[in-house]
Write a protein that binds this DNA or RNA. Structure first.
Lengths: 138, 138
DNA sequence: CGGGATCCTTAGCGATACTG
DNA sequence: CAGTATCGCTAAGGATCCCG
């Protein structure tokens, strides 16, 4: 989200291709990805178009508001295509653009990384916190 | 960051491996990645250990505070190793753990995606905004 | 059904000053 | 040098109600 409210910042971005440069276009693209929701929405759309309610069900913990905002932002940046068949009752579908699909390839890798390595992270956290607790007691 | 302040939530997380489940450990791992900073810090450490000041210089736009917080969070989760040679003047180095390196592999893919495709995103945004403006004028 | 509009709370984060 | 501590703002995002 947010991007839609930052037209100023977006316009000020220099069109350079190094993510380490603050305020360049590449960094802006990266910020679109960051935030957990894009990392879940785009992979969720990989197996085919989905509707609002379906995404709400599939992506645990997301609110209606944030889902709408994020989808709009993704649509604005050309990653998602919103198709509104103008019927009653309403029927709106979201699907990946070619660009969005290419990004989702990279994102599912991340998702799988998280799913594979979370036990190691959990263990590391416990170790770290135990050390801290010992240090605090001295 | 944040993770260190959410020991409660972390403890409540069910140890399940599907990122689409809210509040599972895999999701927690994903949230560690989300936020743009981890996506920049971990790749920045790929070519070798770096110090605080070096990271501040390399990663444009990050503040001292956020850098410290993020590094601590990454360290806590076992992705980064902090080495404090206890000398004067101070000398602290950060480097990737094996786990952190494996994650950075996935992250550099994202960074490169952003660097390659930002023109397409920029173009899409302009198109979208132009359409919106037309619609608003009617 | 798929949102928009509001209100409201909090976390994120910058700025600044201080310390071993 | 590499942080910690404090203040203060802003904006992300939840909850709720409404609408075509």
């Amino acid at each position: 989200m947010s991007t839609s409210l930052r037209s100023e910042a977006a316009r000020a971005a220099t069109p350079v291709g190094n993510v380490f440069d603050a305020n360049c276009s590449a960094r802006h693209a990266l910020e679109l990805i960051s935030g957990k929701w894009a990392m879940l929405i785009l992979p969720a759309l990989r197996e085919g178009p989905m509707r609002n309610a379906g995404l709400l069900r599939k992506i645990g913990g997301i609110s209606q508001k944030v889902l709408t905002e994020t989808l709009r932002d993704l649509e604005r940046n050309g990653l998602v295509i919103r198709e509104d068949r103008r019927t009653m009752p309403l029927h709106v579908e979201y699907r990946l653009s070619a660009l969005g699909r290419s990004l989702s390839d990279a994102l599912v890798v991340l998702d799988r990384w998280a799913e594979q390595h979370f036990p190691a992270l959990d263990a590391a956290r416990e170790r770290y916190d135990a050390l801290i607790r010992r240090a605090r007691v001295e």
